[in-house]
Amino acid sequence: MSSTTDLRRTPLYERHLAAGARVVPFAGWEMPVQYVGVKEEHLAVRSAAGVFDVSHMGEIRTVGPQAAAFLQRILSNDVEKIAVGGSQYSVLCTEDGGVLDDLFTYRLADDVYLTVTNASNHAKDLAWFQRWAEGFDVTVEDAFDEFAMLAVQGPDARRITSQVLGYELPGPFRTGGAIWNDADVLVAGTGYTGEDGVELLVPPAVAPDLWDALLAAGVQPAGLGARDTLRMEACFHLYGNDLSEDRDPIGAGLGWACKEATGFVGSEAVAAARAGGSPHGEKLVPFRFTDKGIPRGGNDVVGGGTVTSGTFSPSLGIGIGLAYVPVASAEVGTPLTIDVRGRERPAEVATKPLYKRPN
Protein backbone atom coordinates (compact mmCIF):
# COMPACT_ATOMS: atom_id res chain seq x y z
CA MET A 1 0.00 0.00 0.00
CA SER A 2 1.17 3.49 -0.81
CA SER A 3 2.02 5.92 1.94
CA THR A 4 -0.90 7.79 3.46
CA THR A 5 0.09 10.93 1.55
CA ASP A 6 -0.77 9.10 -1.68
CA LEU A 7 -4.22 7.99 -0.49
CA ARG A 8 -7.41 9.69 -1.59
CA ARG A 9 -10.14 10.94 0.73
CA THR A 10 -13.89 11.01 0.17
CA PRO A 11 -15.92 14.20 0.73
CA LEU A 12 -16.93 12.72 4.10
CA TYR A 13 -13.43 12.26 5.49
CA GLU A 14 -13.74 15.04 8.08
CA ARG A 15 -17.13 13.71 9.15
CA HIS A 16 -15.56 10.30 9.80
CA LEU A 17 -12.90 11.83 12.03
CA ALA A 18 -15.52 13.85 13.88
CA ALA A 19 -17.52 10.66 14.52
CA GLY A 20 -14.47 8.96 16.03
CA ALA A 21 -13.73 6.64 13.13
CA ARG A 22 -10.60 4.55 12.90
CA VAL A 23 -9.40 5.27 9.38
CA VAL A 24 -7.33 2.75 7.41
CA PRO A 25 -5.91 2.48 3.88
CA PHE A 26 -8.31 0.66 1.56
CA ALA A 27 -8.15 0.37 -2.25
CA GLY A 28 -6.13 3.58 -2.47
CA TRP A 29 -8.35 5.52 -0.06
CA GLU A 30 -8.40 6.51 3.59
CA MET A 31 -11.62 4.86 4.73
CA PRO A 32 -13.36 4.31 8.09
CA VAL A 33 -13.11 0.71 9.24
CA GLN A 34 -15.19 1.31 12.38
CA TYR A 35 -16.60 4.01 14.67
CA VAL A 36 -17.90 2.54 17.96
CA GLY A 37 -17.10 -1.05 16.97
CA VAL A 38 -17.76 -3.56 14.20
CA LYS A 39 -20.22 -5.63 16.24
CA GLU A 40 -22.25 -2.62 17.36
CA GLU A 41 -22.40 -1.19 13.85
CA HIS A 42 -23.27 -4.56 12.33
CA LEU A 43 -26.14 -5.11 14.75
CA ALA A 44 -27.39 -1.56 14.25
CA VAL A 45 -27.82 -2.32 10.55
CA ARG A 46 -29.55 -5.62 11.30
CA SER A 47 -31.92 -4.06 13.86
CA ALA A 48 -32.44 -0.45 12.72
CA ALA A 49 -30.36 1.53 10.21
CA GLY A 50 -26.74 2.27 9.39
CA VAL A 51 -25.08 4.48 6.81
CA PHE A 52 -21.87 3.64 4.95
CA ASP A 53 -19.68 6.02 2.99
CA VAL A 54 -19.10 4.19 -0.31
CA SER A 55 -17.95 7.24 -2.23
CA HIS A 56 -14.80 5.38 -3.22
CA MET A 57 -16.89 3.28 -5.62
CA GLY A 58 -16.65 4.33 -9.27
CA GLU A 59 -19.29 5.28 -11.82
CA ILE A 60 -19.30 4.93 -15.61
CA ARG A 61 -22.02 6.59 -17.70
CA THR A 62 -22.95 5.02 -21.03
CA VAL A 63 -25.03 7.18 -23.38
CA GLY A 64 -26.25 6.78 -26.94
CA PRO A 65 -28.65 5.01 -29.28
CA GLN A 66 -26.62 1.80 -29.04
CA ALA A 67 -26.01 1.97 -25.30
CA ALA A 68 -28.10 -1.13 -24.60
CA ALA A 69 -26.48 -3.11 -27.42
CA PHE A 70 -23.01 -2.14 -26.24
CA LEU A 71 -23.67 -3.06 -22.60
CA GLN A 72 -25.24 -6.30 -23.76
CA ARG A 73 -21.93 -7.08 -25.40
CA ILE A 74 -19.76 -6.58 -22.32
CA LEU A 75 -22.00 -7.30 -19.31
CA SER A 76 -22.92 -10.89 -18.46
CA ASN A 77 -26.59 -10.36 -17.66
CA ASP A 78 -29.45 -9.55 -20.06
CA VAL A 79 -29.21 -5.77 -20.20
CA GLU A 80 -32.24 -5.46 -22.47
CA LYS A 81 -34.40 -6.58 -19.55
CA ILE A 82 -33.52 -3.48 -17.51
CA ALA A 83 -36.50 -1.13 -17.68
CA VAL A 84 -36.02 2.62 -17.33
CA GLY A 85 -35.68 3.17 -13.59
CA GLY A 86 -34.42 -0.37 -13.06
CA SER A 87 -31.10 -1.89 -11.99
CA GLN A 88 -29.26 -5.13 -12.58
CA TYR A 89 -26.31 -7.05 -11.16
CA SER A 90 -23.79 -8.54 -13.59
CA VAL A 91 -20.15 -9.42 -14.01
CA LEU A 92 -17.57 -8.13 -16.44
CA CYS A 93 -15.66 -11.03 -17.99
CA THR A 94 -12.39 -11.44 -19.82
CA GLU A 95 -12.40 -13.27 -23.16
CA ASP A 96 -11.42 -16.50 -21.37
CA GLY A 97 -14.21 -16.22 -18.81
CA GLY A 98 -12.36 -14.74 -15.84
CA VAL A 99 -14.09 -12.07 -13.77
CA LEU A 100 -12.83 -8.50 -14.15
CA ASP A 101 -15.40 -7.07 -11.75
CA ASP A 102 -18.94 -7.42 -10.46
CA LEU A 103 -21.18 -4.43 -11.08
CA PHE A 104 -24.57 -2.80 -10.67
CA THR A 105 -26.00 -1.01 -13.69
CA TYR A 106 -28.87 1.50 -13.46
CA ARG A 107 -30.94 2.50 -16.49
CA LEU A 108 -31.67 6.19 -15.95
CA ALA A 109 -33.34 6.92 -19.32
CA ASP A 110 -33.96 5.17 -22.64
CA ASP A 111 -30.36 5.57 -23.78
CA VAL A 112 -28.60 6.45 -20.50
CA TYR A 113 -27.05 3.91 -18.12
CA LEU A 114 -24.90 4.34 -15.02
CA THR A 115 -22.67 1.44 -13.94
CA VAL A 116 -21.13 1.32 -10.46
CA THR A 117 -17.67 -0.26 -10.25
CA ASN A 118 -15.58 -1.50 -7.35
CA ALA A 119 -13.09 1.12 -6.17
CA SER A 120 -9.90 -0.77 -6.94
CA ASN A 121 -11.16 -1.75 -10.40
CA HIS A 122 -12.55 1.54 -11.65
CA ALA A 123 -9.68 2.53 -13.96
CA LYS A 124 -9.44 -1.02 -15.33
CA ASP A 125 -13.19 -1.23 -15.89
CA LEU A 126 -13.31 2.17 -17.59
CA ALA A 127 -10.53 1.16 -19.98
CA TRP A 128 -12.39 -2.09 -20.72
CA PHE A 129 -15.60 -0.18 -21.48
CA GLN A 130 -13.75 2.22 -23.74
CA ARG A 131 -11.97 -0.60 -25.57
CA TRP A 132 -15.14 -2.47 -26.42
CA ALA A 133 -17.17 0.66 -27.24
CA GLU A 134 -15.36 0.98 -30.57
CA GLY A 135 -17.83 0.39 -33.39
CA PHE A 136 -20.91 1.24 -31.31
CA ASP A 137 -22.81 4.53 -31.52
CA VAL A 138 -22.25 5.20 -27.86
CA THR A 139 -20.33 7.50 -25.53
CA VAL A 140 -18.59 6.11 -22.44
CA GLU A 141 -17.94 8.73 -19.74
CA ASP A 142 -16.03 8.56 -16.48
CA ALA A 143 -18.59 9.90 -13.99
CA PHE A 144 -16.54 9.22 -10.88
CA ASP A 145 -15.98 12.85 -9.88
CA GLU A 146 -19.69 13.68 -10.18
CA PHE A 147 -20.86 11.59 -7.24
CA ALA A 148 -20.47 10.82 -3.60
CA MET A 149 -22.33 7.69 -2.53
CA LEU A 150 -24.02 6.85 0.78
CA ALA A 151 -25.55 3.44 1.49
CA VAL A 152 -28.35 3.55 4.08
CA GLN A 153 -29.20 -0.01 5.11
CA GLY A 154 -31.41 -1.76 7.65
CA PRO A 155 -35.08 -2.36 8.47
CA ASP A 156 -35.59 1.32 9.33
CA ALA A 157 -33.44 2.67 6.49
CA ARG A 158 -36.23 3.41 4.05
CA ARG A 159 -38.48 5.11 6.57
CA ILE A 160 -35.73 7.38 7.90
CA THR A 161 -34.26 8.19 4.49
CA SER A 162 -37.70 9.02 3.12
CA GLN A 163 -38.25 11.41 6.03
CA VAL A 164 -34.88 13.09 5.51
CA LEU A 165 -35.33 13.50 1.76
CA GLY A 166 -39.05 14.25 1.91
CA TYR A 167 -39.47 11.77 -0.91
CA GLU A 168 -41.21 8.43 -1.45
CA LEU A 169 -38.37 6.03 -2.19
CA PRO A 170 -38.29 3.65 -5.16
CA GLY A 171 -38.70 -0.05 -4.45
CA PRO A 172 -35.95 -2.68 -4.33
CA PHE A 173 -33.78 -2.70 -7.46
CA ARG A 174 -35.55 0.41 -8.73
CA THR A 175 -34.15 3.94 -9.07
CA GLY A 176 -35.60 7.40 -8.77
CA GLY A 177 -34.60 11.03 -8.52
CA ALA A 178 -35.11 13.42 -5.62
CA ILE A 179 -34.19 17.03 -4.89
CA TRP A 180 -32.59 17.72 -1.51
CA ASN A 181 -31.14 21.11 -0.53
CA ASP A 182 -31.47 22.16 -4.19
CA ALA A 183 -29.30 19.24 -5.31
CA ASP A 184 -30.16 16.20 -7.43
CA VAL A 185 -30.12 12.89 -5.59
CA LEU A 186 -30.15 9.57 -7.43
CA VAL A 187 -31.86 7.05 -5.14
CA ALA A 188 -31.26 3.37 -5.88
CA GLY A 189 -33.00 0.56 -4.05
CA THR A 190 -29.81 -1.48 -3.81
CA GLY A 191 -27.17 -2.31 -1.22
CA TYR A 192 -24.73 -5.02 -0.16
CA THR A 193 -25.71 -5.97 3.37
CA GLY A 194 -28.61 -8.37 2.95
CA GLU A 195 -30.93 -5.74 4.44
CA ASP A 196 -33.42 -3.47 2.73
CA GLY A 197 -32.30 0.07 2.08
CA VAL A 198 -31.06 2.49 -0.55
CA GLU A 199 -27.91 3.93 -2.01
CA LEU A 200 -27.82 7.69 -2.51
CA LEU A 201 -25.65 9.21 -5.23
CA VAL A 202 -25.25 12.94 -4.69
CA PRO A 203 -22.92 15.77 -5.75
CA PRO A 204 -19.78 15.56 -3.57
CA ALA A 205 -20.38 19.03 -2.08
CA VAL A 206 -23.78 17.96 -0.78
CA ALA A 207 -22.67 14.71 0.84
CA PRO A 208 -21.52 16.11 4.23
CA ASP A 209 -24.84 17.85 4.91
CA LEU A 210 -26.81 14.77 3.88
CA TRP A 211 -24.61 12.63 6.15
CA ASP A 212 -25.32 15.03 9.04
CA ALA A 213 -29.06 14.89 8.37
CA LEU A 214 -29.11 11.09 8.36
CA LEU A 215 -27.15 10.88 11.62
CA ALA A 216 -29.41 13.49 13.22
CA ALA A 217 -32.39 11.32 12.25
CA GLY A 218 -30.92 8.36 14.14
CA VAL A 219 -28.90 6.46 11.55
CA GLN A 220 -25.71 4.82 12.91
CA PRO A 221 -22.49 5.48 10.95
CA ALA A 222 -20.96 2.15 9.97
CA GLY A 223 -17.51 1.33 8.61
CA LEU A 224 -15.91 -1.16 6.28
CA GLY A 225 -15.62 -3.75 9.04
CA ALA A 226 -19.38 -4.03 9.50
CA ARG A 227 -19.93 -3.86 5.74
CA ASP A 228 -17.71 -6.92 5.40
CA THR A 229 -19.37 -8.98 8.14
CA LEU A 230 -22.83 -8.07 6.83
CA ARG A 231 -22.08 -9.04 3.24
CA MET A 232 -20.53 -12.34 4.37
CA GLU A 233 -23.65 -13.24 6.35
CA ALA A 234 -25.59 -12.56 3.14
CA CYS A 235 -23.03 -14.55 1.06
CA PHE A 236 -22.29 -11.60 -1.22
CA HIS A 237 -18.98 -11.66 -3.08
CA LEU A 238 -16.07 -9.30 -2.54
CA TYR A 239 -13.91 -8.72 -5.58
CA GLY A 240 -10.27 -9.60 -4.94
CA ASN A 241 -11.32 -12.20 -2.37
CA ASP A 242 -14.10 -14.31 -3.83
CA LEU A 243 -13.85 -13.10 -7.44
CA SER A 244 -10.84 -12.56 -9.68
CA GLU A 245 -9.64 -12.87 -13.24
CA ASP A 246 -8.44 -16.37 -12.34
CA ARG A 247 -11.96 -17.52 -11.41
CA ASP A 248 -15.03 -17.96 -13.61
CA PRO A 249 -18.53 -16.84 -12.56
CA ILE A 250 -19.95 -20.37 -12.70
CA GLY A 251 -17.53 -21.72 -10.10
CA ALA A 252 -18.22 -18.56 -8.05
CA GLY A 253 -21.94 -19.31 -7.98
CA LEU A 254 -22.90 -16.41 -10.23
CA GLY A 255 -24.31 -18.42 -13.11
CA TRP A 256 -27.70 -16.79 -12.45
CA ALA A 257 -26.19 -13.45 -13.53
CA CYS A 258 -24.79 -14.86 -16.79
CA LYS A 259 -26.93 -15.12 -19.92
CA GLU A 260 -24.60 -16.66 -22.49
CA ALA A 261 -27.19 -16.37 -25.27
CA THR A 262 -26.56 -12.61 -25.35
CA GLY A 263 -23.02 -13.23 -26.63
CA PHE A 264 -21.22 -11.15 -24.03
CA VAL A 265 -17.44 -11.06 -24.00
CA GLY A 266 -16.33 -14.36 -22.44
CA SER A 267 -19.71 -16.03 -22.93
CA GLU A 268 -18.28 -19.06 -24.75
CA ALA A 269 -15.88 -19.80 -21.90
CA VAL A 270 -18.67 -19.30 -19.35
CA ALA A 271 -20.95 -21.64 -21.32
CA ALA A 272 -18.18 -24.27 -21.33
CA ALA A 273 -17.79 -23.95 -17.56
CA ARG A 274 -21.53 -24.28 -17.09
CA ALA A 275 -21.63 -27.41 -19.25
CA GLY A 276 -18.46 -29.10 -18.08
CA GLY A 277 -17.67 -27.53 -14.74
CA SER A 278 -15.25 -24.84 -13.68
CA PRO A 279 -11.71 -25.34 -15.04
CA HIS A 280 -10.47 -25.33 -11.44
CA GLY A 281 -12.81 -28.16 -10.48
CA GLU A 282 -13.96 -26.11 -7.48
CA LYS A 283 -17.07 -24.27 -6.33
CA LEU A 284 -17.44 -21.34 -3.97
CA VAL A 285 -19.50 -22.39 -0.94
CA PRO A 286 -20.63 -20.73 2.27
CA PHE A 287 -19.61 -22.48 5.46
CA ARG A 288 -20.05 -22.15 9.17
CA PHE A 289 -17.86 -23.39 11.99
CA THR A 290 -19.36 -26.07 14.20
CA ASP A 291 -17.06 -25.21 17.09
CA LYS A 292 -14.86 -22.31 18.19
CA GLY A 293 -12.61 -20.34 15.87
CA ILE A 294 -12.61 -17.51 13.35
CA PRO A 295 -11.69 -18.25 9.73
CA ARG A 296 -9.77 -15.77 7.61
CA GLY A 297 -9.16 -15.40 3.92
CA GLY A 298 -6.20 -17.53 2.85
CA ASN A 299 -6.83 -20.33 5.37
CA ASP A 300 -6.50 -23.77 3.80
CA VAL A 301 -9.34 -26.25 3.64
CA VAL A 302 -7.80 -29.56 4.70
CA GLY A 303 -7.94 -31.99 1.79
CA GLY A 304 -8.27 -29.26 -0.83
CA GLY A 305 -9.64 -25.77 -1.12
CA THR A 306 -9.08 -22.25 0.19
CA VAL A 307 -11.04 -19.82 2.33
CA THR A 308 -11.55 -16.57 0.38
CA SER A 309 -13.52 -14.64 3.03
CA GLY A 310 -13.88 -15.38 6.72
CA THR A 311 -15.04 -13.63 9.87
CA PHE A 312 -16.91 -13.95 13.14
CA SER A 313 -20.64 -13.46 12.55
CA PRO A 314 -22.11 -10.96 15.05
CA SER A 315 -25.64 -12.13 14.18
CA LEU A 316 -24.97 -15.86 14.51
CA GLY A 317 -22.20 -15.87 17.11
CA ILE A 318 -20.00 -18.28 15.12
CA GLY A 319 -17.21 -18.25 12.56
CA ILE A 320 -18.44 -18.12 8.96
CA GLY A 321 -16.97 -17.65 5.52
CA LEU A 322 -16.77 -18.48 1.85
CA ALA A 323 -14.36 -21.01 0.39
CA TYR A 324 -13.52 -22.64 -2.90
CA VAL A 325 -13.67 -26.39 -2.40
CA PRO A 326 -13.60 -29.41 -4.73
CA VAL A 327 -16.99 -30.06 -6.34
CA ALA A 328 -17.27 -33.34 -4.41
CA SER A 329 -17.13 -31.34 -1.14
CA ALA A 330 -19.61 -28.64 -2.16
CA GLU A 331 -22.91 -30.20 -1.10
CA VAL A 332 -24.77 -28.57 1.79
CA GLY A 333 -23.98 -30.36 5.02
CA THR A 334 -20.59 -31.65 3.90
CA PRO A 335 -18.09 -31.54 6.80
CA LEU A 336 -15.02 -29.39 6.25
CA THR A 337 -11.86 -28.84 8.24
CA ILE A 338 -10.27 -25.39 8.13
CA ASP A 339 -6.63 -24.84 9.05
CA VAL A 340 -6.64 -21.64 11.11
CA ARG A 341 -3.03 -20.73 11.86
CA GLY A 342 -2.05 -24.33 12.38
CA ARG A 343 -5.17 -25.37 14.31
CA GLU A 344 -7.77 -27.52 12.56
CA ARG A 345 -11.31 -26.23 13.07
CA PRO A 346 -14.46 -28.20 12.15
CA ALA A 347 -16.97 -26.62 9.80
CA GLU A 348 -19.73 -27.58 7.39
CA VAL A 349 -21.01 -26.37 4.04
CA ALA A 350 -24.13 -24.27 4.66
CA THR A 351 -27.01 -22.81 2.67
CA LYS A 352 -27.22 -19.25 1.35
CA PRO A 353 -27.68 -16.83 2.97
CA LEU A 354 -25.91 -17.72 6.18
CA TYR A 355 -28.13 -15.30 8.09
CA LYS A 356 -31.89 -14.97 7.61
CA ARG A 357 -34.03 -12.43 9.38
CA PRO A 358 -36.33 -14.13 11.93
CA ASN A 359 -40.01 -14.04 10.97
Rank of each mutant, 00 (worst) to 15 (best):
L100A: 04
R15Q: 14
S87V: 05
A226Q: 04
A269Q: 10
M31P: 00
T351L: 13
L108T: 15
R341K: 13
V219N: 08
G298T: 13
K81R: 15
V54N: 00
W132Q: 01
I338C: 11
G37L: 08
L214M: 07
E80G: 06
G98W: 06
T308F: 09
V349D: 12
L254Q: 06
L12A: 11
T94D: 13
G154F: 11
I250R: 00
G135Y: 03
F236C: 02
L92F: 10
L243Q: 12
R107T: 09
Y106H: 14
A216F: 02
P204W: 04
F129T: 05
S90R: 07
E268K: 13
G255A: 08
L126V: 13
E233C: 02
E59I: 01
S76A: 15
C258P: 04
T139N: 03
E141N: 03
T311F: 07
G166E: 12
L201Y: 02
P155H: 09
D111T: 14
D78A: 14
D291M: 02
S76T: 11
R341D: 15
L17K: 11
A109G: 09
A127K: 13
Q220W: 01
P203T: 00
D300V: 02
E331P: 00
I320A: 11
E195G: 06
D184V: 10
E41F: 08
F104Q: 06
A148E: 03
D156K: 14
A48I: 00
T62C: 13
Q34W: 11
N118I: 14
G298L: 12
M57H: 14
G225C: 06
G189N: 02
W180A: 00
F173K: 12
L108R: 13
E59N: 11
G304K: 03
V325F: 09
M149P: 00
G310P: 07
L243S: 12
E168G: 06
E268Y: 01
T262K: 13
P155W: 07
P314I: 08
V325H: 08
K356D: 10
V51P: 03
G176P: 04
M149H: 14
E41N: 07
G319W: 12
D78W: 01
D111G: 03
G85Q: 08
E59P: 00
A217V: 08
P65G: 05
A217P: 05
G218C: 07
E95D: 13
S244V: 03
S267N: 09
S162W: 08
R159E: 15
L114R: 01
L284A: 11
E14I: 00
E348Q: 12
